[in-house]
Amino acid sequence: MSEEEKKMIGFKCKKCSRINYPKRARCLSCKGMEFEEVELGKECELVTYTQVYNPPAGYKGDPPLMLGIVKFPNGVLAMGQLAIDHPKDLKLSAKLRPIWGMLREIGGKEVFGFKFELAKKEQTSKLK
């Protein structure tokens, strides 16, 4: 699967329908153990964010490191890095979309995962 085709996946409990993200051994709501993989969505909304001027060891970008919590249309919330260059006008309801990229290094190894960029991209991502 190409990087563009990677989808953010949630884990829908077959017993109570709660979408768990991230996955647990048992559903947080009902302890169900069978899940169906569902795509969280191609677009989400910013709930809260920050710019971290003292990032942890292993973060390779220039500070600040932008982090945020986003909400998908199905109600699932996720935390991740924000690949946004000029956050001055960033609003708490801004529309974002998940993109795949390098997050940081841990123990000298690169760690990849989803981060979020503006859905209407007027800027180039600095974190790609």
Binding site: N54, P55, Y59, M79, Q81, L103, R104, I106, V111, G113
Partner: peptide, 8 residues
């Protein structure tokens, strides 16, 4: 893994 810290 995403670089989250307690201050963030």
């Amino acid at each position: 893994l995403h670089g989250a810290t307690l201050p963030s």
